[in-house]
Design a protein around this nucleic acid. Structure first.
Length: 464
RNA sequence: GGUGCGGUGGCAGAACGGUUAUGCGUGAGCCUGCAAAGCUUAUACAAAGGGGUUCGACUCCCUUCCUCACCUCCA
């Protein structure tokens, strides 16, 4: 598999026959997550699901930043503790992302639970003279790390001349960043240097190395983390281990709205709860995967609607497949499956192009719907198609809700009744049955000779 | 100002030095008791501007312009 690596700015081969270790920078838990967070996490979720579908073991670690100024501020505002705030939003995170059908990570380490690791990390950096203690805390000496700027392609002197960097007198160099901040505001921990809490970047270095080793495969996050977060992580980690840190750096583009980055400070966010309520998980996932992961994607009702249309077509495809009963084996089916399956895999293997993969998936959908319309969908062929179709659904994290056997029985009975009424031209009564099924979220599709049903989840967007 | 992605039809988004995907949308038709959905078909003188290179460029080179992101917390 090839992936574009931010560090080398080139495509790197990833050997997926071995175990893959992935660290994804998660969220700071001080507020609700929005669709920008969702995109990054869904991209990595699909990456992981694809690898696992190929039999690759994936160690997938995603942190929660649960000590941070924003959390503390929020706690003050609500007159509660930082711990209360972070645990509330961790819960909120799981509600959102379970709702988006994101598979739980192997591990969700929290900064507050790794203070020892962090302290040891800092201790060693001080021993190596890569860090120093000052009035306000412990700082990393950027000028001592010769490759600083290699990830973000920034030059140290240019950064220093940047007028927007706030100069802190306690720092030897304005670029130095905090490993440990002295503070006696809760939460704080004792340390060899004084009471305080960890800086932001150090937790990811300490925890990724702790769980994945000193040199793991993929480190990822949103593009906005390249500088300074990931740059700093490289500096501290490589100073610590004297080895190359992550092999591949994978960065996901921003979700924009009207062309502008979606962010709290701009106040233009769409929360996951909001989009989930209005569009449902499948449509959001399709939306998040509809462009190449590295590029920005613009949130718009139009695009969401387009993905809703495509999802409806996919659902119909599925129901056509399970209802197939024609006996017209088509020798082209084998070829069709091979072709779409290869296109799907090839797209993902060449820098994880989910847009192209989706194209292959929809090609299969179109073809099945065509065959069904032409009454050429053989039931045995359908079985073969279903297994490939379901494999793609699984990788993409899309879910078609299942129904129970009893429900199916009931639906079949109602349809039979309706057919009889239609034959007798008692259309009003027949329509009543159709309405009743509709209330059960069952939609009928009348083909020339037969009627099939599909389960159709109602979402708010349908009624808008 | 620096750095980095980009700029392709109404929208989304590919490949490719020569024949311009694909999807959504839109028009027409088929099917239907009606409806929904589906299917069929049509549709677009698309390549930011200007120079080159070439027999030929959307694709290569130069240049100008523009968007966005990062340079401060951020997925």
């Amino acid at each position: 598999m090839k992936l574009q690596d931010t560090l080398s700015n080139s495509e790197q081969m990833l050997d997926i026959s071995k175990k893959i270790r992935v660290y994804l920078c998660g969220v700071t838990v001080y507020d609700e997550s929005h669709i920008g967070h969702a995109r990054t996490i869904i991209v990595f979720d699909v990456l992981r699901k694809y690898l696992e579908s190929k039999g690759t073991t994936v160690d997938f670690v995603q942190n929660f930043t649960d000590v941070d100024d924003k959390i503390i501020n929020r706690a003050e505002l609500e007159n509660t503790t930082a711990e209360q705030i972070s645990s509330r939003y961790i819960q909120n995170y799981f509600t959102d992302f379970d709702g988006l059908n994101v598979k739980r990570a192997t591990n969700y380490p929290k900064a507050t639970e790794h203070i020892d690791d962090i302290e040891n990390f800092i201790k060693k950096l001080i021993e190596k003279d890569m860090a120093y203690v000052s009035k306000n805390g412990v700082y990393f000496s950027v000028s001592k790390f010769p490759h600083y700027g290699k990830l973000s392609k920034k030059k140290i002197d240019e950064l220093q001349s940047g007028a927007r960097i706030e100069v802190d007198e306690a720092k030897k160099d304005p670029l130095d960043f905090a490993l440990w901040k002295f503070s006696d505001v809760k939460p704080f921990w004792d340390s060899p240097w004084g009471k305080g809490r960890p800086g932001w970047h150090i937790e990811c270095s300490a925890m990724s190395i702790r769980y994945l080793g000193e040199n793991f495969d993929i480190h990822g996050g949103g593009r906005d983390l390249i500088f300074p977060h990931h740059e700093n992580e490289i500096a501290q980690s490589e100073s610590f281990t004297e080895k190359q840190f992550a092999k591949i750096w994978m960065h996901v583009g921003m979700v924009t709205i009207n062309g502008e980055k979606m962010s709290k400070s701009l106040g233009n966010i769409k929360s996951i709860k909001y989009v989930l309520d209005n569009w449902g998980s499948n449509v959001i996932r399709l939306f998040c995967l509809s462009g190449h992961y590295s590029k920005p994607i613009d949130y718009s009702e139009e695009l969401l609607k387009e993905n809703l249309t495509k999802w409806r077509q996919s659902e119909i495809c599925y129901y056509e497949l399970i209802h197939a009963n024609d006996k017209n084996h088509d020798s082209k089916i084998k070829l069709l499956i091979e072709e779409t399956s290869n296109e799907f895999d090839n797209a993902l293997e060449s820098d994880f192009n989910t847009h192209l993969a989706l194209l292959a998936f929809f090609k299969l959908v179109k073809e099945v719907n065509y065959l069904a319309a032409e009454e050429k969908l053989d039931s045995n062929d359908a079985k073969i198609i279903i297994s490939e179709f379901e494999r793609m659904l699984e990788v993409l994290g899309l879910v078609i809700p299942k129904i129970t056997l009893e429900q199916k029985q009931e639906i079949d009975n109602l349809i039979t009744n309706r057919e009889q009424l239609r034959k007798e031209k008692k259309f009003q009564e027949a329509d009543k049955i159709r309405d009743k099924l509709n209330e059960m979220n069952i939609e009928l599709i009348d083909h020339k000779g037969k009627t099939i049903w599909m389960r159709k989840e109602k979402i708010n967007a349908d009624t808008q």
